[in-house]
Design a protein around this nucleic acid. Structure first.
Lengths: 187, 187
DNA sequence: GTCTATAATGAGATAGAC
DNA sequence: GTCTATCTCATTATAGAC
């Protein structure tokens, strides 16, 4: 693993566990074993580290969602696959999930658009909008429908990340998805 | 308005708009018009300001929820009243809503329990648990049910706070509530 | 209770050798 | 590309007069 990636990996851990502002460049160099000089060779500044990390994770999410769109044809199947993906990431790589939808990027990445406006979230809303057009999902404002469909699962994810949930997330999958789909499905 | 409350009001604005770590004690004294000495007379330190603010708002939410529990008897009516309350606060006092469910308290209030474990959130889960016992809400894990019921509205609130929502939140109320209730209601 | 002046610290970032 | 030593500066918090 090269120095560049070591820094990003360490930053992901520290930013999500302690928060961006509670993590000093010193912490990053110590934990990653990469010296100050090298860190600043690869990244312009501390914000540059966060920005690179953010873009890497958004790109990855986007690719995973593109695969889902390609593999499933109905809104029902696409959205369910998205929830399964989110739950899986949350369990297997909680730091990644945490950085994607828990951290307040705006406070330290003022130049980036808010996560909710990022491609992955747009794609999720597009799935729902298509579902409405096809008559799978009740006609209503698509942003409202997307919030109702994904809001429950996202809420469960934040509870899991906060350690409030007493059982593994995937055990909630069937009930949660049944509720989500019932909320918006036609008849 | 006394110095104590002026500080809390200013802190609420600055913490929610710029973030806790992007707000210096200097900012608070300048914006509130209260001098450093006075701020430190009323509060132990910066964390003390945040802590007082947090407890004030949690107490307020708790009182509002107690009123709702007293005024409505079914889980349906109680939960709907909660969503109406949350939407109203989000529109009329976005800073308050932002501080309650958007800000990452854990990063600067390590001693407080996470918001999700606070009384108001517990009360919301209790309403749902009672609804299940009474047969109004489908039998399932009550945490899952509460997430499915309130997850959609909470998601809409975060979108509104992020400025993504293009219309006023209350216009989403009827659709959102219909989805929420359909998600968990019996038959 | 309120104020100003200032001390003490720790952060981000740079310089420049290797 | 990598490293250590160091600079610069903003921030929190205190001291002590009024």
């Amino acid at each position: 693993m090269n120095a560049h990636d070591k820094v990003l990996g360490t930053a992901l851990q520290l930013f999500t566990r302690r928060g961006y502002f509670n993590t000093s460049m010193r912490d990053i160099t110590r934990e990653s074993g990469v010296s100050t000089g090298s860190v600043y060779h690869y990244f312009k500044d501390k914000e540059g580290v966060a920005s690179a990390l953010y873009q890497q994770l958004v790109r990855r999410m986007q690719q995973e969602l593109e695969r889902i769109v390609a593999q499933h044809s109905s809104a029902h199947d696409q959205c369910r696959a998205v929830v399964e993906l989110l739950f899986r990431i949350c369990q297997q790589e909680p730091d990644v999930m945490s950085f994607m939808l828990y951290i307040r990027h705006r406070e330290f990445l003022p130049k980036e658009r808010p996560v909710c406006s990022s491609r992955p979230f747009e794609m999720m809303r597009d799935m729902v909008a298509d579902g409405i057009r096809r008559g799978e999902i009740r006609p209503m404002d698509s942003l409202t429908a997307a919030s109702c469909l994904f809001g429950g699962p996202i809420r469960l994810i934040t509870l899991a990340l906060d350690g409030i949930l007493d059982k593994p997330l995937n055990e909630c999958m069937d009930d949660a998805w049944a509720c989500s789909w019932r909320a918006v499905a036609v008849s």
